[in-house]
Design a protein around this nucleic acid. Structure first.
Lengths: 138, 138
DNA sequence: TCAGAAAATGAAAATCATTTTCATTTGTTC
DNA sequence: GAACAAATGAAAATGATTTTCATTTTCTGA
């Protein structure tokens, strides 16, 4: 994935710097949905001189490269997820522990298409966030 | 609906002031999903002395009273909708004109319950936002 | 190899939506 | 009408994110 990022950067005359590498590596290592701040803190552990700004900038680039997606759940800040496997997916968010679980359901997607069609609406994308209490917290 | 708001306020020793009435009336008149700023501007037309703060505070109270809901689409600020008819519903958001259409689909709800059950997850609520291009804009 | 240009960095300032503070006004109660 | 609670509006504060800017790093071509 780093190579894809490098390709993206090179294509527009940008550079894969040491800092960017570190941010991306740290980001990919975590399989969780990190906020910019969380990622910044993780990165800072390895390289204390790295600035908040660089983390933000790198996340933005990753999103532009379509290698990461910004998600807004209901806590007032963005969380980022790598555009790994599962092209598209939805989320189950636990209100107690904050855990975020991904899922896909073909059936729901089909029904959405149906609803959209009935409204003469052409879907480009969607967000389905289900809030509640996860197995562990019940 | 104003009477329900008044009841809510009275129950906790608060008052339905002239300003609050005006904000709520203006809010209910619009059948659209207004942002705080949009509502503020509308209110200001009728009573220029009303402050931004009062609009925010009133919206917050309405939300606490469960007479309005704050929604976060992807434009960085909240939009509010009256908790009118349709207890729960989802949204079709046009990326071109910004129009927001509400819909309900029992089938999708049922499938969500199914997915949740499979994950041992207990749903409290959810958000389904479908983005794309509406009939008028295609 | 070196000069010059382009891009990147980090700190600090700026932004934007929203909330809080605070002095003042208004409404309620006794 | 005095005393007190609640509401208001302006301005300041907040918190996430972005921009600015001076400095540093990297690349490119002579």
């Amino acid at each position: 994935m780093l190579d894809r990022f490098e390709k993206f950067l090179n294509e527009r005359g940008l550079r894969l710097t040491t800092q960017r590498q570190l941010v991306v590596r740290t980001f990919l290592d975590q399989e969780e949905h990190l906020s910019a701040e969380e990622l910044y803190l993780l990165v800072k552990k390895k390289a204390p001189e790295i600035g908040y700004t660089t983390v933000y900038r790198t996340l933005k680039l990753l999103a532009e490269a379509d290698l990461a997606h910004a998600r807004n759940f209901q806590d007032g800040f963005a969380r980022f997820e790598p555009a790994h496997y599962m092209g598209h997916h939805d989320h189950l968010i636990c209100r107690k522990c904050g855990s975020i679980t991904e899922f896909t359901n073909e059936h729901i997607e089909v029904m959405q298409e149906k609803v959209a069609r009935e409204h003469g609406f052409k879907i480009t994308d969607h967000t389905l966030d289900i809030y509640g209490v996860c197995r562990e917290c019940r």
